[in-house]
Design a protein around this nucleic acid. Structure first.
Lengths: 333, 333
DNA sequence: ACACAAAATGTAAACGTTTACATTAATTAT
DNA sequence: ATAATTAATGTAAACGTTTACATTTTGTGT
């Protein structure tokens, strides 16, 4: 492997000047610059980024931690991040927490050992110890959290406004003429699902819709039980004409249950999900949903990180994205 | 940041012994070992992996290139890779080619500049220049290709037996009683789609099914045109009772077209896709498909790489995975 | 022609490790 | 007790850059 030394030898220049050429230093004459570049080409020289990183303290590597990479939401975010950072010469190194706080800590520590220039992450469901985050922040290593963020005051974060998403989804159903709405909720221990439920209920309240004991329910993911549940629900309350579901996968599942009960969508009942999964527009009927703007979330997180990397910003930034209503046939008039 | 030097100073030992402790060298007495570890804890020492990498030539970083990370198939592969490598102290750095040969080359080169210990990749559709691959191989840098592999003799590769997948999908339809089969093919410039087509045709031949001009067709992804195409196809050949589609997304698309023509699945016509996408079991009717075993593909690619990294193997290894038939309602009897 | 500033290049140390080789300490065999 | 062997530690160079500082070269104005 050719090094800067070899180029120096060939050209008769010093290491410093050669180095300066590759760092686009202005104080190098065009003549020597081209001499160096010629020699570089001739030797098939490529800079050793490790060495540069060691000496300069800038690795041009960004660490990314997500719960699971194998998930449309997170992989889309990674896509957004990668696109943004690659153009600027950064590389991203990826770790999965698999929802384990231990994996997360280990990944984070190994990122530090690798001298990453910055960190982008979504914390695991089990993370309770924020000590390392605080250390990173106080060490001035830029870190931006997205989607799942720790409850800390001074952090960079990018999140989706789940409350608002639920609210506009519900209003959409109401505006479409639904008089009798219910919500199929997600695990109430998870904060985003709590927010979605609240958004739904607040929208009902705003439009003076009544709230009953059955207005919010959770499915069990046991098809037999769930079918039973839905069946009795509709037998007792046949006027239900709109459902807001906490996620798209559950929406599909529910759609199938409803279809087997011969309830027609959207004629008899309108349905809207949350997440705008990759398959939502492919199913029959195409599912209305709330888009989480994953690509943008990644891009924005990366942008905030970049601003800190380049010292253009030092104050923490809290970005809350507005979800987008995607209307498809399942909630059409 | 504490360094080995600080520990040496505190303990009164030399750099070498301290270094040896962290590299688990056997020739260091238990007494000094614990002395060093104590000091390390006290100073909150963490080894600088960049420095170690520079000196030793081993970065413990593996480069991974995929066309798109934002894709269930590839993100599952990445998941398999990450799981396997993380346990052994490796970190993975990810780049997307976005199907551009230029991006791919750049990523590859930056991996080399970063001194990655090995490379795992699936080549872009546009890759035609294999020179860099050959250089990498002749430089003895371990590289394993998965799914989309270059046509080179001596390479490590993990692929799915697309031919076989198509063959068993087709036989499954035949065994289910289909008499009049057609295939909706993918872009014939892509080798996996060619193989799937061949598997289909060979299965037909094996079972003495006739092949007509319309037996294989391609969709345009223009819904109007495609609906027209399918419509006339079925008007001319109403006895068509089975379709093997080159992919699951196209299968869903086709399913929707068929439904709008009031063709019922699986009663009137059986359908099977390829890929076993995350949504395939969620749609109505649940779609039969060929599972590509993505997680395993990643894990196996990583395993082969590891064998080369540890010098336990030097001969290139070609692994061809058998696809798995997943029968669901769309092809049920 | 000269002084002086600006531009271009050079010198050498530093980044934090690893490691070949040398040395010293501890153990064993005689 | 001594030599021989083994175990433990130390010395110093190296990995390939960057960069503060020093020096030389070039250009400008008089």
């Amino acid at each position: 492997m050719a090094s800067i030394k070899d180029i120096a030898k060939i050209t008769g220049l010093s290491l410093a000047t050669v180095s300066r050429v590759f760092n686009n230093s202005p104080s190098v004459s065009p003549k020597t610059r081209s001499k160096v570049l010629d020699a570089a080409k001739q030797l098939d020289y490529h800079p050793n980024q490790m060495a540069a990183a060691l000496r300069s303290g800038k690795s041009k590597i960004i660490g990314v931690i997500v719960p699971e990479v194998n998930n449309y939401f997170f992989s889309s975010i990674i896509n957004g991040i990668e696109k943004k950072l690659t153009d600027l010469g950064y590389r991203i190194i990826i770790a999965q927490s698999h929802e384990s706080a231990e994996n997360e800590q280990k990944a984070l520590q190994s990122f530090l050992n690798l001298n990453v220039d910055g960190i982008l992450m979504s914390i695991s469901k089990k993370t309770t110890d924020y000590a390392l985050f605080e250390k990173i922040i106080s060490d001035q290593l830029p870190i931006v959290f997205f989607d799942r963020i720790p409850k800390l005051a001074e952090i960079n974060s990018v999140t989706l406004d789940d409350y608002k998403g639920a609210y506009i989804a519900t209003e959409h159903l109401i505006e479409g003429g639904c008089k009798h709405l219910i919500h199929v909720a997600g695990d109430s221990k998870v904060s985003i699902f709590k927010k979605r439920k609240k958004g739904f209920l607040d929208a009902l309240a705003k439009h003076k819709h009544p709230v009953n004991t059955y207005t919010v329910s959770e499915l069990s993911s046991n098809p037999k039980k769930d079918l039973e549940l839905i069946n009795t629900l509709f037998q007792l309350h046949p006027t239900i004409d709109g459902i807001f579901v906490h996620g798209d996968e559950s929406s599909l599942y529910l759609m199938n249950l409803l279809q087997s009960l011969k309830i027609s969508i959207p004629k008899q009942l309108k349905l809207i999900g949350f997440g705008n999964a990759n398959y939502s527009e492919l199913v029959q009927p195409p599912l209305s949903s709330i888009d989480q703007r994953c690509d943008e979330m990644g891009a924005i997180a990366a942008t905030i990180l970049l601003k800190h990397l380049t010292k253009k910003q030092t104050m923490p930034q809290k970005e809350i994205l507005s979800p987008k209503l995607i209307i498809r046939q399942s909630s059409a008039n």
